[in-house]
Write a protein that binds this DNA or RNA. Structure first.
Length: 161
DNA sequence: TAGGCCATCTGGTCCT
DNA sequence: AGGACCAGATGGCCTA
């Protein structure tokens, strides 16, 4: 698990270096499809800057079906990444936080969904419920499924209204 | 420099 | 047959 707790005190990482600007998944997909129609240069695999992901040049002699399958696979993965971006935008994060990895996004989302379910069942105001749980634990439970340090650390930054 | 994360390629499997 | 999905392999980038 990636380091999830960041120090915002003096001496910690600069806030600008932690600030993550979410890309626009729709624009990425559109750019990708436009690039596929053009004949771009290919920087090679690796890296996570999706803006540098034009279609690769077609290797001489590579079967047409294999090229088409590669293209479909890249397009599919772009769709998958767009879904991850959307999910990242829905889970609670610190004001200045690195971009969540895919695995952290899934774990955090799982815990967050469990929390929201508990809040619905409780009928309480979300903030009241969370504060009570953080003080004395979830009512009637040993330990709520969502009560992980990853999520609870971020809950203090959630605006419930 | 090692480890984490990620994009891409590739071959296999399943479905329409 | 062709497309969607999946998992393994590979290599690049970044950070501690």
């Amino acid at each position: 698990m990636e380091e999830l707790c960041y120090s915002f005190e003096e001496g910690g990482p600069a806030a600008e270096s932690l600030l993550w600007e979410p890309p626009d998944p729709g624009a990425q997909l559109e750019n990708f499809l436009l690039e596929c129609l053009a004949e771009p240069s290919w920087p090679g695999p690796g890296g996570d800057d999706l803006n540098k992901l034009p279609a690769p040049p077609e290797p001489v002699g590579q079967p047409r079906q294999r090229r088409a399958a590669n293209l479909r696979e890249r397009r599919r993965m772009l769709g998958l990444n767009a879904a991850f971006e959307a999910l990242r935008g829905r889970v609670p994060t610190f004001p200045y936080e690195r971009r969540l990895s895919k695995i952290d996004t899934l774990r955090l989302a799982t815990a967050y969904i469990a929390l929201l379910g508990d809040i619905l069942l409780s009928g309480c105001h979300p903030q009241t419920y969370v504060e009570q749980c953080l003080r004395s634990g979830a009512p009637g439970r040993q330990r709520a499924a969502w009560n992980t340090s990853d999520l609870t650390a971020r809950l203090s930054w959630v605006k419930w209204d």
